[in-house]
Design a protein around this nucleic acid. Structure first.
Lengths: 149, 149
DNA sequence: CCTCATGTAATATTTAAATTTACAGCAATT
DNA sequence: AATTGCTGTAAATTTAAATATTACATGAGG
């Protein structure tokens, strides 16, 4: 299974934009420094979130703003926006079982039956958590003065 | 997120051993052909399952046998045996957020709060499915005559 | 029209996963 | 006790995926 770090980076960006997006012009360069992730990767990421309607980006001049109330932005939605088929990639399947063997012929189908249940459960789990929850956790922590980025 | 294909291969092996382990001497070489996965990888995999008490391997002479009733072998147990900290590796986190930025300083903690819930949910989900369920699905399928492997 | 951003393609680098090679150790068979 | 076929495991190589880099066209405000 595998959900990439992109999800974590996206959340980082969304929290940042929510907290500082009004006062500050949040550019990919700024987010790159805050996250420690390459600016091009940030742009691709924000671009995906934008396509899903989660945020808007002022192209040319720079800056990003949330378009949805944080309670409507679930982890599922974020993951889906970044990587549309992340759920099917969640659990890897060996690609070349032998077609001559009865187990080999049928294993993919057998695995899929159960894996589908796991995917559905994970899906529900990810839909239960929203950006709002994460912001609440964030606000509960001390030391949020910004020395720099 | 990421659960490796090893889990699928392990299940393939367990089904095979359950179905043919009595009649046939199931060697790593045989499982390698059936799965399409390298024999050394198979041995490492079976070795991990053995350490967890799921099966026994007749070293020297070859052959493997299940030690547990299939109903007690959950997907969780298999994943855990293969990769003990697969749950914490499930969702990747960007390794170098800026310590100068308030979001950067706190993001790991904030992510962990929510990710822990997701991990727990996935854990329950994986515990709900056993090898017995998979065997039932397998037996429901046609064409289980073994031409070869 | 100059400056600073975004959007995006192409290439290169890094990292992780799986395979290959190699060989020591074990157990049954002769 | 020597041979055979298999396991156990380490080390090196290969492959594949994720991420970063470079480069440049395009957009919008000063």
């Amino acid at each position: 299974m595998h959900i990439s770090t992109k999800c974590s980076v996206a959340i980082h960006c969304l929290v940042f934009i929510h907290e500082y997006g009004e006062k500050t012009k949040v550019t990919s360069e700024l987010l790159s420094r805050s996250t420690g992730v390459n600016a091009v990767t940030i742009r691709n990421l924000l671009s995906a979130l934008k396509k899903d309607g989660i945020l808007s980006i002022r192209s040319g001049t720079g800056g990003a703003t949330l378009l949805c109330p944080p309670g409507e932005i679930t982890l599922y939605r974020i993951c889906k926006a970044i990587e549309p088929d992340f759920l099917s990639k969640l659990i890897g399947v060996h690609p070349q079982p032998s077609p001559l063997c009865p187990v080999g012929r049928n294993i993919h189908h057998v695995l899929e039956c159960s894996y589908q249940k796991v995917r559905n459960d994970l899906c529900s789990s990810l839909k239960r958590i929203t950006l709002e929850d994460l912001l609440t956790d964030y606000h509960g922590l001390p030391e949020k003065n910004m020395e720099s980025v």
